[in-house]
Amino acid sequence: MARTIAKDHDQKRDQILKSAAKVFATQGFDRASMALLARECGISKANIYHYYDSKDALLFDLLETYLRELRDRICHIEISDLSEEAQLRAVVAEILMAYQGADYEHQVQIGAMSALPEDQQQLLRGYQRDLVKFVEAIICAAAPEVFDGKRETLRATTMSVFGMLNWYYMWNSGAGSDARESYATLVVNLTLGGLKAL
């Protein structure tokens, strides 16, 4: 007889993913064990195996959930009625807001993705590429004359914006919403001001 899914299955799964992100980020993926993960979650080792048959499966679900939800949150933001500059401001601010409270997930993405099989890494990189392409198109629309025929310049500019956002995550991870909004404005002003000088 098939085991029925508990009513709080999704809630427990989310708790496991949050706890695993903390363990993988602070202890390192290689040093983490299912016993340690279960302890951090406050459940038995047998119970964690009810959800995941290995820490590799847990790592993949953690990153797949985090990156897919991040991509969907940013790429589905409603900006069609905004000017190109306002679109860029809205998207940069939304990225910083999405990073809020996801420090451990972000660290695991950077430090542990390479532990997964290549096909799983390709799927996760696809989510990252979707997000980069979305932001890239908005940056290009903000100054099309600058990027006409300059694909590499557009790519470098886009990745520089992400670099500024990731710098903020690394050094100001505890910042609140107001501080993130303020820094988003700074990033966009630097980017748009810099575009005029290219």
Rank of each mutant, 00 (worst) to 15 (best):
V188G: 02
L192I: 15
G174R: 04
A2W: 10
S114K: 10
N166E: 05
W167C: 02
S83T: 14
Q121C: 15
P144M: 03
G193W: 15
L124D: 10
K12D: 02
L59P: 13
R151Q: 11
K45N: 13
I139R: 03
L37H: 09
A38G: 13
D72N: 11
L82G: 01
I110T: 08
L190N: 06
Q15S: 11
L59A: 04
L116E: 14
G42D: 10
E40V: 01
I79S: 08
W167P: 05
R129Y: 15
Y127M: 01
E118P: 01
V132H: 10
V108A: 00
D10L: 15
M113V: 08
V23A: 07
I16W: 14
T26D: 12
Y52Q: 05
I110K: 13
T26P: 07
G101V: 14
M170Q: 09
L116V: 09
I16P: 12
T157H: 07
Q122K: 10
E64L: 04
K150I: 02
D61F: 11
C75K: 02
A6T: 04
K196N: 13
A35L: 10
R3W: 05
D72P: 00
P144T: 01
I16K: 08
S114A: 13
D72E: 15
V146E: 01
R129I: 07
V187E: 05
K55F: 14
Y127H: 15
I95T: 07
N47Y: 15
A102R: 13
T4Q: 08
Q100H: 08
T185K: 15
G163S: 08
Q87M: 14
M1C: 02
Q121M: 13
Q128C: 05
L154E: 02
L70P: 11
V91W: 03
A141K: 15
L165T: 08
A141Y: 03
V188K: 06
K12A: 02
L165Y: 03
R155T: 13
A21H: 13
I110S: 05
R155C: 06
E152Y: 06
A32T: 11
A32M: 09
A57C: 10
A179I: 00
T157R: 05
Y49D: 05
D14S: 12
K22Q: 11
A115V: 00
E40W: 13
A86D: 10
I16N: 11
K55Q: 08
V188R: 07
K22S: 06
G174I: 01
L165E: 15
R180V: 00
F147E: 01
R180N: 02
K150E: 03
D8S: 14
I43M: 12
G149H: 06
Y183H: 02
A184L: 01
L63M: 05
A90K: 12
K45F: 03
E78L: 04
V187N: 04
D53I: 06
V161S: 04
S182V: 00
V92A: 07
A20Q: 08
L124E: 09
L67N: 08
G193C: 11
T4F: 07
L123V: 14
Y99T: 02
K7N: 04
E69T: 04
E94W: 01
F134P: 06
R155D: 14
G174H: 04
A141M: 04
M1S: 03
R3V: 10
R71F: 08
A179D: 07
R39E: 13
